[in-house]
Amino acid sequence: MRGYQEVAFRTAYLITGDASEAEDATQEAFVKAYRALGRFRSGAPFRPWLLAIVANEARNQRRAAGRRAGLFLRAARECAAENSPSPPESAILAAERREELLEALGGLREEARWTIACRYFLGLSEEETAAILGCARGTVKSRLSRALRSLRTEIAKEGDAG
């Protein structure tokens, strides 16, 4: 399990928005995965199966804590402001671009936001994204395409408004 704990914890962190809850969710998911090993289909990839359990546990934690979804946007916004690698002369433009992107992400439906977060923030494969979202692998491709289209529309709306 050690080899999977970073991606598992980061997935849980983006869902719960809280390090301590993410830690609990990851641990609980590992325990449940171990108990459910008998039901694991031999020959199937292990990581998507495990990440589905982690995401489920993290969602339960988030619900129990009464938090709303989409917390990763807050985390991304806070971190992006602090960790910008851009040189000073382009820093303002890059920060504006990121802020624009975050605003646009905030305007998307949760399903679209999560498809984007899985693929681009967590760097997950289509199969892993499908496991977390609870959909077929082929659906991820179409959802991602729709999500990016919606994102561009949101960005354009902001451009027009600005």
């Binding site: 914890f9 962190y13 983006l14 990851t26 992006a80 923030f121």
Partner: peptide
């Protein structure tokens, strides 16, 4: 750019 907390030994 997301600054994740250190990964615990879950």
């Amino acid at each position: 750019l997301i600054d994740y907390p250190p990964t615990p030994d879950a």
